[in-house]
């Protein structure tokens, strides 16, 4: 199939299903919709609230309204509600819920609609015959797949030829889900909207309370004291190397320090520990620890790299049974510690 045959113009029905598309936003501009009349537009407002509530509770955006206009406007209204919460967990959760809902809907779409959606994200995409449904430029693939877990997503395992990655429909839809999430997150990345009607602020507060109940159920807490027996093998290897005064690579040292900071070792305790290592340099060590702990520079607290990154740089060592089930050394620590406790 030639590329031109694959394309189709998206309809208002498509925009109601996928209101995050660029063209759908343009339609909203024509829908006579303003922030100040938001709460008086009852159908739109109810659907918007329904979107966010469902996202928080059930990770989807609820049942579609019958009227396409309401469906499109309520998407924009929901974004305003979410921004009004000023809550990063809700923002992330909402973006993910929109993306997952879109994913479920895209599974029923034909090749031409999917192509049109992908083009809305500026993808370099065309028919992938004779090998697969599609082929897409490798940078568009990586932008979305690089953060996915599982060897089936690794670039090295794709059919790639002259810069194009050949993919079937299911994988393209999964990658589009990532695009949707990123786009919605970007649209929510606004610290606040000034002069919102008081009613909206009150509802936003309710949404935050709802979210807090949900968060309470999900967090798995790190143990309060350091449990060395629960260290993953990579960290044990780094720890042993450092203790035996072997040289650690920059990334090895960063991994060890960031891991220990994140499981709750204080910078002072870490400094004491590193003192026992042979190539200890007080000024440098203190600087690195404080930097990682977010007490310097940008104030960002760093987490240690995930397993796949440690594999790339040959820091991953002695993988065991539990390693197969996790993607991050900290997750290993949490699970191992739990199993030690129950044993």
């Amino acid at each position: 199939m030639a590329a031109s045959q694959m394309e189709k113009a998206l309809s208002s029905e498509d925009f109601a299903k996928y209101p995050f598309l660029k063209h759908a936003s343009k339609q909203i501009a024509n829908l006579d919709f303003t922030i100040s009349n938001l709460s008086s537009e009852k159908t739109v407002f109810d659907r918007a609230l329904n979107r966010v509530t469902c996202a928080i509770n059930e990770m989807h955006t609820g049942k579609m309204a019958n009227d396409k206009k309401t469906e499109i406007s309520s998407f924009a209204a929901a974004l305003i509600l979410v921004i009004a919460t000023k809550n990063s967990w809700i923002k992330k959760r909402y973006a993910l819920a929109v993306a997952k809902t879109a994913h479920a809907q895209m599974l029923n779409e034909k090749i031409d609609t999917l192509t049109a959606i992908a083009k809305d994200f500026d993808w370099d995409i065309c028919a992938g015959s004779p090998y697969k449904d599609f082929r897409i430029g490798f940078t568009f693939y990586l932008r979305n797949a690089a953060h996915m877990h599982g060897i089936e997503w690794k670039l090295v395992n794709q059919i790639m030829d002259r810069g194009m990655v050949y993919l079937n429909k299911d994988k393209v839809i999964r990658l589009l889900q990532e695009e949707v999430k990123a786009r919605v997150e970007k649209r929510l990345d606004i610290p606040e909207i000034k002069n919102l009607p008081e009613e909206i602020n009150l509802i936003a507060n309710d949404l935050v309370r709802l979210a807090q109940e949900q968060i309470g159920e999900e967090t798995d807490n790190l143990p309060k004291v350091v449990v060395q027996a629960a260290f993953p093998p990579c960290i044990n290897a780094l720890y042993a190397d450092a203790a035996a005064s072997h040289h650690l690579s920059h990334i090895g040292r960063f991994t060890l320090t960031a891991f220990l900071v994140n499981i709750g070792m204080t910078p002072e305790a870490l400094n004491e520990l590193f003192k026992t290592f042979s190539d200890y340099n007080e000024r440098l060590t203190r600087y690195q620890i404080e930097h990682i702990a977010g007490e310097r520079g940008s104030g960002t607290r760093y987490t240690c790299p995930q397993c796949s990154v440690l594999q790339t740089h040959s820091v991953c060592k002695n993988r065991d049974e539990l390693c197969r089930r996790i993607y991050h050394p900290l997750k290993y620590y949490v699970l191992k510690q739990k199993s030690l406790k129950s044993a």
Partner: peptide
Amino acid sequence: RSLDAMARKEIVDYVTGLGLA
């Protein structure tokens, strides 16, 4: 130019043949 560190890591893994299924 806009590829992030994770995307570049995938390119590295490709070049070194790491993770071949």
